[in-house]
Amino acid sequence: MVRSDVKRFIENGRTSIPYLQADWRGGFAPHLYGRVSAGIFEQIYAGLSTELLYRNPDDGWSVGGELNWLKRRDEDQLFGLEGRDSLSGEISLYREWASGVLAVVRAGRFLAGDWGGTVDLSRRFDNGVRIGGYLALSDGSDREFGGTSPDKGVYITIPLGELWPFGGPRRSVSTELTDLARDSAQRLRLNSRLYDYVAGINRQRIDSDWPQIVN
């Protein structure tokens, strides 16, 4: 199971640790970034995560790869871990336009061991708010993973504090409306993926936001 038993986590994790992770980020070559993360990533999973991202700041294209070694947490969501572990990963292609529209196509191995892909389309508005939706489909069978119908949802991310258009870490709060908890086509819910940190560093974004900077 991946998320279909989330009710047990909610019931038994009234005093819990939502996430607790350590991150290292750096640059290896021009336009090539890396990340290594360890700790508690979300309500159900903890472990290790690695990522590489290539992004040329002169255009809106990026490509990245991610690999995760994970263990399910105990239902009380403190420091205990169950014996089961899983390996997941994906290749992602990003295209962002100066208007703030971002299209992402991902393909890889989901948390339950099923294989598939995700299409994510969103828009960033002038005030920094991003609204989007996604559709994910995998080869998980009805018997193993509880169905093969697409996993879909919509989300909104609202930045907190003063916005800075040149990118970099910024605090934000996100809300997601999705299907009922399921096991197929599920990604790790990770707070620190590289694209969120470097996507603002591109010439198209600077040209679009420059009037707000100088006024």
Rank of each mutant, 00 (worst) to 15 (best):
R3F: 12
R3P: 08
K7R: 13
E11W: 08
N12C: 05
N12L: 08
T15H: 12
D23C: 04
W24R: 06
G27C: 07
L32G: 02
Y33C: 02
R35E: 05
A38F: 09
F41R: 02
S49F: 06
T50K: 13
E51P: 02
R55S: 14
P57R: 01
P57Q: 06
W61N: 15
S62L: 02
G64F: 02
N68R: 02
N68M: 01
N68I: 00
R72I: 04
R73L: 01
R73I: 00
D74P: 05
E75S: 10
Q77W: 02
L78G: 01
L81Q: 03
R84E: 05
L87I: 06
S88R: 04
G89E: 05
L93C: 07
L93I: 03
A98D: 07
V101Q: 12
A103P: 04
A103R: 11
V105H: 07
R109I: 10
F110M: 05
L111V: 10
A112D: 04
G116R: 00
D120G: 04
L121T: 00
R123N: 09
D126T: 07
D126E: 11
R130E: 11
I131E: 13
G132N: 10
L135S: 10
L135Y: 08
A136Q: 13
A136W: 05
L137M: 15
S138M: 07
D139T: 05
G140R: 13
R143M: 13
E144V: 12
F145M: 14
F145A: 15
G147L: 14
T148K: 14
P150W: 03
K152T: 15
V154K: 11
I156G: 06
T157N: 12
I158E: 13
P159C: 10
P159L: 03
G161T: 13
E162I: 11
P165F: 14
P165N: 05
F166I: 07
G167N: 00
P169W: 07
P169F: 14
R171T: 09
S172W: 00
E176I: 13
E176M: 14
L177A: 06
D179Y: 02
D179Q: 03
L180P: 10
A181K: 00
R182E: 08
S184A: 12
S184D: 07
Q186N: 04
R193E: 09
Y195W: 01
Y197P: 01
I201R: 15
R205V: 13
D207S: 12
S208G: 08
D209K: 06
Q212E: 10
Q212V: 08
V214Q: 15
